[in-house]
Design a protein around this nucleic acid. Structure first.
Lengths: 233, 233
DNA sequence: TAATATAAAATTGGATACAATTTGTTGGAG
DNA sequence: CTCCAACAAATTGTATCCAATTTTATATTA
């Protein structure tokens, strides 16, 4: 899209951010500075700067004196993330419809096509990434940088939420939500589009089990059953 | 409000951020690293980290090899800032009304009282700061961290916008917008509150001259008239 | 005198060195 | 053999050092 040569900083940042979007880095994963230095061939100065940026995106958690880990949003955080997404993504639809060009429509359709192709070939990482890209690019049409930037962060956080709370046995399956949304935008049907987007986001949140606390990191709850069984058995 | 001891980082960050909110630092002001080091008694490592954070808030601009300056949002940026604020601040009003406690109401009224007192004593810095704090605290009632955080940034950027584009001869004068909003919230009148907020934000944006480019930092335009007068005179 | 070239100073960018803290291991007492 | 303490290794936090770039000052020439 943009042929401007990335800076080293930007490149490394994108690599880590993408790994989160594609769930190649999952919540709790430790990010050792020296390892990142080796991987990317830069000094700790650079790596620490990038970790700070990622922590402000709420994608990485910086624990003082204990290093960086991929963030593990709590259930309440996830509710707020999706509440915010509903507010933003529904709220900008008038502008999206207003400013959407034929080129925008085509670009969005391309993303959806690649997304469905990824699903059908079992490419889960690619599918998740493209689903996220769809939402961010759609928001980009609305010409509001602050909102697009926040949505970019929220989409990445949603990826972490999905990794943590997705209901088990939930298989990737093609659905027409995204393509329906593009069609509604292209037709300028803002009201219909808002409705589609609202349902789509509610569906996405409903795929998660936020009621069951399921803090995977809380070892006590993870092993509560076996410990109990052993004590009584 | 919260008695937790701030880290040095947080403290310095808040000092600079506050200076922007109070327009003691105005767009274009140079932030020399060595100066900040002396002022706050820390090494450049710390200062550079804080400047990075402020640049991600779009409050500081980091120009490669040329140092940091307070950001000067363009007219289009300001439109987007206020469009985003309308979306957020109107969009969360249902939640604000839903979750607003008596303590919240009192706290908000206190802020408005202090704001009006600042206006009447001619304390411009304090007034601007408290006006901003009102909006951020009101948003805080809605219990959505991502949205409150974005609004916090947008309020700071609004302060820069005001410094750049405020129509000349615009005096500080007490108006009842804020107190009316609090009353509507306390009464649970969400629809009325949305209307009040919409008008309030439109008024704020209208106080600026975004049509006239007016980049104050462009010396050529600042002195264009006198130069022209001298040339022809 | 005005303009330009050159040199000096100041400032930023990045890597390294050192201090502080945490984590892991070994040895000994009970 | 288990538990605890002391020590060692690894990791993070901060300050400092050096290189690269920009800005300022000086000198030279037309």
């Amino acid at each position: 899209m943009n042929g401007q040569p990335e800076t080293t900083d930007e490149w490394i940042y994108d690599q880590v951010f993408s790994a989160v979007l594609e769930q190649r880095l999952i919540p709790g994963a430790k990010l050792r500075e020296s390892e990142l230095c080796e991987v990317f061939g830069v000094s700790r100065t650079i790596i620490r700067r990038i970790l700070l940026r990622l922590s402000l995106d709420k994608v990485v958690e910086l624990r003082p004196n204990k290093g960086a880990v991929i963030a593990t949003p709590a259930a309440e955080d996830v509710r707020q993330i999706f509440a915010a997404r509903r507010l933003l993504e529904i709220g900008i639809i008038d502008e999206v419809c207003k400013y959407c060009t034929a080129a925008n429509t085509q670009s969005l359709k391309d993303i959806v096509a690649r997304e469905n192709s990824a699903i059908q070939t079992g490419n889960r990482s690619g599918a998740i990434r493209l689903a996220g890209e769809f939402h961010v690019r759609l928001a980009g049409v609305a010409r509001n940088k602050p909102i697009q930037e926040l949505l970019r962060q929220l989409v990445a956080q949603s990826s972490l939420a999905l990794a943590l709370y997705e209901a088990p046995g939930h298989l990737l399956c093609v659905d027409d939500d995204h393509i329906d949304i593009v069609d509604a935008v292209a037709a300028g049907e803002a009201a219909k589009c808002r409705d589609l987007m609202a349902r789509h986001l509610e569906k996405a949140e409903a795929e998660m089990r936020l009621d069951a606390p399921a803090e995977n990191n809380d070892l006590k709850s993870v092993f509560a059953e076996v410990i109990e069984a052993r004590a009584t058995g």
